[in-house]
Amino acid sequence: MKLAVAFSLAEQRFALPVQWVEQVVRAVAVTPLPKAPPVVRGIIDFRGEVVPVMDIRQRLDLPSRPMALSDQIIIARASGRHIAFCVEAIIGVVEWDGADFVATNTIVSGVEFLDGVVRNQEGMILVYDPDAFFLPAEQLMLDQAMGQDHVHG
């Protein structure tokens, strides 16, 4: 049985595997980060660590919108660093077995950051792979914008 934290964006349902998720917090002010890749909304302070906030909406080609006070931020560990994802709502934890899961590459090619689709009684949930979120050039831009000269991985 696999587990993931399910969340909503633009009335669609997505999930992150629980092994990547460290904490869910309420929306906080995001500070813009100059020279960061466009997919980075800015940075936040998480327990004394500067953490980039990703714009999942942009990566998933969803309509852009400003952050709302009711939004949630998922803190995950991926690509060798903490990453924050702003989502509209946490749905809960979903579980599935192999029969309920369809790998993305069997449906469509070229969507590297999605791991697959879980089918359950509520419908379908796209399972996201946070380790594949950044393109190599974006990872390099983010490292440079955050003053780091090494590549995470």
Rank of each mutant, 00 (worst) to 15 (best):
S79I: 08
I91Q: 03
Q72N: 15
D115M: 05
G80E: 04
T106W: 11
P66F: 11
I91S: 08
P130L: 03
A132Q: 11
L69K: 07
V118L: 14
S70C: 12
G116N: 07
E95W: 01
W96L: 08
D131V: 04
I73T: 09
R65I: 05
V108G: 03
T104P: 00
F85M: 10
F85L: 10
A78M: 04
I107E: 05
D129N: 14
G92M: 00
A76Y: 07
R77L: 15
I75R: 11
R81F: 02
F85C: 04
Q72P: 02
Y128R: 13
H82P: 01
G110F: 01
E88C: 04
T104R: 07
Q72L: 08
I75K: 10
D131G: 08
E122H: 09
I83K: 04
G80C: 12
G98I: 10
I107H: 04
V108C: 06
A76E: 00
S70R: 06
F113M: 07
L126N: 12
E88G: 02
V94L: 12
E122P: 00
Q72M: 11
F101R: 05
W96R: 10
F101M: 06
L114E: 13
V118A: 08
C86E: 03
P66N: 14
A103Q: 14
S64H: 02
V87E: 01
T106Q: 13
H82N: 12
L69P: 03
G110T: 12
L126K: 13
E88H: 04
V94S: 12
A89Q: 14
I125T: 13
I125V: 07
R81I: 02
I125H: 01
A78T: 01
V118H: 08
T104F: 01
P66K: 14
I90C: 09
D115V: 05
V102C: 08
R119K: 15
R65C: 03
M124W: 03
G110P: 03
R119I: 12
V108Y: 01
G98T: 14
H82S: 06
G80W: 10
V111Y: 01
A132D: 09
F113A: 11
Y128G: 09
G116R: 05
T104W: 02
E88N: 06
N120K: 07
T104Q: 05
I90G: 07
H82V: 08
D129W: 03
F134D: 02
E112S: 13
L69D: 10
N120F: 01
R77Y: 13
V108P: 04
E112W: 05
D115I: 02
P66Q: 14
I125M: 00
I74G: 00
